[in-house]
């Protein structure tokens, strides 16, 4: 597994296109941080925070889905996977290694971009609150984690890179762009009293929404969601919420890895 992990990391880091992603993070984040020169310090849940969160929600899931699915689909397509299959290596370890390598590489690129943008912001006299910075940083890292994971899973199911791209974009569009539209459409047929419980359940299905809600709550703005979510907000405000988040991440990770390794095992047999 560690060989795969190292190999994946090295291959990613040696691609030139990888550094264009780094450049993208620096550009986008710096621009966002420098937005609104009139504000001395960025903190709390304000329009700037909401804008940054939404831009992150637009870009990160899409890129990570494509990256994740391509890295697996590529090897399936060019025959490398068949080669690896001849080694005594389980699919679970293979997929974990791939994911781990990608995760480290992408997180490093994002961290670098975030660090440089912070420095640029500070250089231009912007202030940041430490709490705010951590909230946004962890939010983005969370997005990278969940959508790389989803991407790798998608990758193990597709036949070609082309298919990987289509499915990635579809998932992104579904979870980020039309999620509320779909839910409003479906819940329109549900009895009134079921709307809030179903919304809560749906929250756990969509990691993008899950992370967004956590971000808003952790920034102390959970009250904006209203009475229906008062209990949820109180729960997520407490320190024990990190346990809930950890369980959620772990569950998602296990489910996705198992799913894709089972699928890859079947492919090996073919």
């Amino acid at each position: 597994m560690w060989t795969i992990w190292q190999y994946e990391l090295r291959m990613t880091l040696r691609q030139r296109s990888f550094y264009s992603l780094l450049l993208l993070w620096v550009t986008v984040l710096s621009l966002l941080f420098l937005l609104q020169s009139s504000t001395p310090s960025i903190e709390g849940y304000t329009s700037i925070t909401a804008t940054i969160a939404n831009v992150a929600l637009y870009i990160i899931p899409l890129f990570m889905l494509i990256n994740g699915s391509f890295t697996v689909a590529n090897e399936l397509e060019n025959g490398q996977f068949r080669l690896i299959s001849t080694y005594p290596l389980s699919s679970l370890l293979y997929i974990s290694g791939k994911l781990g390598g990608q995760l480290v590489a992408q997180a490093a690129a994002f961290t670098m971009g975030f660090g440089i943008s912070l420095a640029i912001g500070l250089f231009f006299g912007k202030g940041f609150s430490l709490e705010w910075m951590w909230a946004i940083y962890l939010f983005c890292i969370g997005l990278i984690f969940f959508f790389l994971l989803t991407g790798v899973t998608v990758g193990s199911f597709v036949r070609s890179r082309w298919q990987a791209l289509t499915i990635s974009v579809t998932i992104w569009f579904f979870l980020v762009m039309i999620w509320p539209t779909v839910l409003i459409g479906v819940l329109g047929h549900a009895p009134y009293t079921w709307v809030s419980p179903l919304m809560k359940a749906a929250l756990f299905v969509n990691p993008a929404e899950f992370l967004r809600i956590i971000l808003v709550i952790k920034l102390g703005a959970g009250a904006v969601f209203g009475q229906s979510y008062d209990a949820l907000v109180n729960m997520m405000e407490a320190p024990s919420s990190w346990g809930v988040i950890a369980v959620y991440c772990g569950g998602f990770l296990t489910a996705a890895l198992l799913l894709s390794s089972i699928r890859l095992n079947r492919r090996k047999c073919q």
Binding site: V186, L187, H189, A190, P191, T193, W194, L198, A201, A202, V205
Partner: peptide
Amino acid sequence: SIMMVGIAMLIIAA
């Protein structure tokens, strides 16, 4: 599956 559950609930509620 969520949708299915939703529909089931609908029936029960009705």
